[in-house]
Amino acid sequence: MFAVTVLFQIKEGQMDAFMPLMINNAQTSLKTEPGCLQFDVCADPARPREVFLYEIYDDEAAFKMHLTSAHFLTFDAKVADIVASKAVQTFKQVMQ
């Protein structure tokens, strides 16, 4: 198991443009990537410019395949100008 968290800060006034692209990326990942087991998109109204992702993959190789997928590359290019910052963390399972 390989977990990925991402914390996005979205530029002012860009959340309505960002969220449909983010949701589409998550749904496509779950539908088309056999190694993508979970892809949660989370937001808190108290922090209106922040989006948190929680993703689970079979292993690190499955995540690396995600990063090279056509849908991810398209998403990444489309949101480049509307994301203020992005912090990615990865975690490997230490016990089952």
Rank of each mutant, 00 (worst) to 15 (best):
L73A: 03
F75S: 05
F91D: 13
F72S: 06
L53N: 10
T68E: 14
L53G: 13
A17L: 07
D76P: 00
K31G: 11
M15D: 00
T5L: 00
F72C: 02
F8A: 08
A46F: 06
P34A: 07
I56H: 11
M95E: 15
P34I: 04
D81Y: 02
A43Y: 10
L7A: 06
S85Q: 11
T28W: 01
M22E: 11
K92D: 15
D58I: 06
D58R: 09
P48L: 01
V41N: 12
V79M: 08
T5W: 01
P20E: 03
L53A: 12
F52C: 09
L37R: 14
A43R: 13
K64S: 08
V88M: 13
L30R: 04
D76C: 02
V51R: 01
Y57H: 09
S69N: 04
F18L: 04
Y54E: 10
T32R: 06
P20I: 02
L21Y: 00
E55H: 05
N25M: 05
I82K: 03
Q93M: 14
M15F: 05
C36T: 10
A3N: 08
P45M: 06
T32Q: 14
A77C: 06
G35V: 02
D76E: 10
A80H: 09
V94G: 15
D59S: 07
T5V: 05
T90Y: 06
D40C: 10
A62W: 00
V83N: 08
V88N: 11
Q96P: 15
Y54G: 11
F91M: 15
T90L: 12
S29K: 03
V41D: 09
Q38M: 13
I56Y: 06
A46V: 07
M15V: 12
T68S: 11
F39N: 11
M19D: 00
L21G: 00
M65I: 08
E33W: 01
F18N: 04
M65W: 04
A46Q: 15
K92L: 14
M95H: 14
E33C: 05
F2R: 03
V83M: 08
Y57Q: 09
V79D: 09
F8C: 06
C42D: 12
L30Y: 03
R47L: 14
E12V: 07
K11Q: 10
D44T: 04
G13M: 02
H66D: 03
A26Q: 07
F75T: 03
F91C: 15
Y54A: 10
V41S: 12
L53W: 03
G35E: 10
I56W: 07
